[in-house]
Computed example of a mutant assay.
Amino acid sequence: MNRSVLITGGNRGIGRAISEAFLKAGDRVAVAHRGTDELPDALNLRCDVTSTEQINAAFTAAEAAHGPVEVLVSNAGITDSAPLAAMSEDQFSHVLDTNLTGAYRVAKRASRGMVRIRHGRMIFISSVMGAAGRRGAGNYAASKAGLVGLARSIAREYAPYGITANLISPGLVRTEMLDDMPEEMRLQLLDRTLLKRPAEPDEIAATVLWLAAGESRYITGAEIPVDGGLGLGA
């Protein structure tokens, strides 16, 4: 494809699968992350999405190497769960700052180049929990629900510039986050998942790649569940 792609949180789990899928498709991929795991053949950039300065630096480096970012995948996210009564304001605020405000920061920075070339795809990784909620994870669920309003507002605002904004909402995915989930909760969610298994990361990546493809150019403001039926409320 040879597009300029930037993926936040693209070195582990779902993000890594997305990065590898774009690399396999022949795109120029910049991976912005806080960790030490790096992807061969990608431009690896140190970036904390809670820092506007680090985001600006990452985009500047990606643009210098690959040109204006044409596809943004806002995937960086964290969890810090606790029951509501025990959740501190810092716990709540930090998750929102990373998952939701971080997405705003990278989308705002990406919009500059996309407006200039009058073309762009913004893809946000939300969660089925944004609509369903999750016991003990009000901060995470709120951050993912907020992404829906953000993406749809961007879709309305930037459509005249040829920019689309969409969301993918996974259910259970076979990543470290699933491994860290309490066993009782994991089993309950698997039981509610109609296909009775977690998704593989490459199944989420395939949907991201499809949304970034030319065949999907008429889709904007959409939230696509990739959740095995978990969101149907079974």
Rank of each mutant, 00 (worst) to 15 (best):
S4Y: 03
T8N: 00
G9M: 04
G9L: 01
G9A: 05
N11I: 06
G13Y: 02
R16V: 11
A17W: 02
I18T: 08
I18W: 06
I18M: 11
E20C: 08
A21R: 08
L23W: 06
L23F: 05
L23Q: 07
G26E: 07
G26A: 13
G26F: 11
R28T: 04
T36F: 13
L39E: 00
L39N: 02
A42M: 02
N44F: 11
R46K: 15
D48R: 05
V49I: 15
T50N: 09
T52D: 14
T52S: 13
E53Y: 03
I55N: 01
I55K: 03
A58M: 08
F59N: 03
T60N: 14
T60W: 11
A62W: 01
A65M: 12
A65T: 10
E70S: 09
V71K: 04
S74G: 10
A76N: 07
I78Y: 05
S81D: 15
S81W: 00
P83A: 14
L84Q: 13
A85D: 14
A85S: 14
A86F: 05
S88D: 12
E89P: 10
F92K: 08
H94C: 12
T98A: 07
N99E: 01
N99R: 03
R105P: 04
A107D: 04
K108A: 15
G113D: 11
G113S: 12
V115F: 06
R116M: 14
H119K: 15
R121A: 10
R121S: 14
F124G: 04
S127I: 06
V128F: 02
G130L: 02
G136F: 04
A137G: 01
N139H: 15
A142G: 09
L147Y: 08
L147W: 06
L147P: 04
G149R: 08
A151W: 06
R152S: 09
R152P: 01
R152C: 09
S153L: 12
I154Q: 00
A155L: 14
E157L: 08
A159P: 00
P160R: 15
Y161T: 12
Y161E: 15
Y161S: 15
Y161M: 14
G162W: 00
T164H: 09
T164I: 03
A165V: 08
L167A: 08
P170R: 05
P170W: 01
L172R: 02
R174T: 12
E176Q: 14
M181W: 05
P182E: 12
E183M: 05
M185R: 11
R186Y: 11
Q188T: 13
R192H: 09
T193I: 00
L194Y: 11
P198I: 10
P198A: 13
E200I: 08
P201F: 01
P201K: 07
P201H: 07
E203D: 09
E203K: 09
T207H: 05
T207R: 06
V208T: 04
V208Y: 03
V208A: 04
L209A: 11
L209G: 03
W210L: 15
G214K: 07
S216Y: 01
S216C: 09
Y218N: 11
P225D: 08
D227W: 07
D227C: 04
G229W: 03
L230V: 11
G231I: 01
G233V: 07
